[in-house]
Simulated scan of single mutants.
Amino acid sequence: MEKIALSPEVSLSRLVYGMWRLGDDENTSPAHVQAKIESCLAQGITTMDQADIYGGYTAEAILGAALRAAPALRDRIEIVTKCDIVAPAGRHAAARVKYYDTGAAHINASVEASLRDMATDRIDLLLIHRPDPLMDHHETGAALDALVASGKVRAVGVSNFRPWDVELLQSAMTAPLVTNQIELSLSAHAGFTNGDVAYHQRKGQPLMAWSPLAGGSLLSGADLRLRDALHRIGAEQGTDWSAVAVAWLLRHPARILPVMGTNSLERIGRLSDACRVEMDRQTWFELYTHAMGHEVP
């Protein structure tokens, strides 16, 4: 599978395995998690996407248990994780309200917890999970720069930031912000016209796309014509509709990295089907037209 270079130090697989729901599986044993990772690796999917908040602050430790049981896996994967969301759960159960914290103390504490929980000595890519209205960009930028300099974090980026949020934080940093993980799919396509994708494409920064299948609800909320087109194209190319929907993102020249989340070993084994779907310009616009509900102007 193609690898996408985000920086001289960090390259990610074109498809990323998302561990948002890792703790929702009935089986969270190290052996079962290892089986998921091995299935990804067999397809060339080497990047695992985490966040401290996933699973109510439990998903990182579930991954860590698998890496402790099979330590050789760590050098075969890239770990992406995120911080700054504080929700009343897990280690933050005493919080009165859900909030964001981009202060240096919180970022450093989050990184130390992530390193410990995931049984690793470095995070390949750390993302600030959500824009913080109270962010002191000088403090946040200095904290991220220090983490990169320390080697605990190899590269840094953001998630759900708008272009002006990226510019603000980057203005106070030496290390580059190498990516932005945003929602992109056939049901969340505003980024292709509101400047989000164009901003990063102009800067040559690959984007990560969360919920490329709208959290699994893409078909249920889609126009009948979109559903029919996805099924038809999938059948024509010997795969299913989900591979076609992800291929729609892969077709874009911005070098989008879809983050694919599922607990089904059978579905994990088919994630790379999306890379084999051929999609010409008219097919891309056919799906886009149905997703919008009207033809382009």
Rank of each mutant, 00 (worst) to 15 (best):
E2I: 06
I4W: 03
L12D: 01
V16S: 01
G18S: 04
W20T: 06
R21T: 10
T28D: 11
P30T: 15
H32P: 03
Q34A: 13
E38P: 03
E38L: 14
A42I: 11
G44L: 11
I45M: 02
T46K: 12
Q50G: 02
D52S: 09
Y54R: 14
Y54F: 04
G55S: 12
G56R: 10
I62L: 05
I62T: 08
G64P: 09
G64M: 10
R68Y: 00
L73C: 04
K82T: 13
I85C: 05
A94K: 12
V97F: 11
Y100Q: 07
D101G: 11
D101Q: 03
I107C: 09
N108T: 13
L115M: 06
D117E: 14
D124F: 09
L125F: 06
A143Y: 09
D145V: 07
L147S: 08
V156M: 09
V158H: 01
P163A: 10
P163Y: 03
E167M: 14
A172K: 07
M173C: 08
T174I: 10
A175M: 04
V178M: 03
Q205L: 14
P206M: 11
A209L: 00
L213Y: 04
G216D: 01
G216H: 01
D223K: 07
D223M: 06
L226N: 04
A235M: 06
T239W: 05
D240A: 14
A243T: 13
A247N: 05
W248H: 13
L250N: 02
P253I: 08
P253K: 15
M260I: 12
N263W: 02
L265C: 09
R267S: 09
R270Y: 03
M279Y: 11
E286I: 03
E286H: 03
A291P: 03
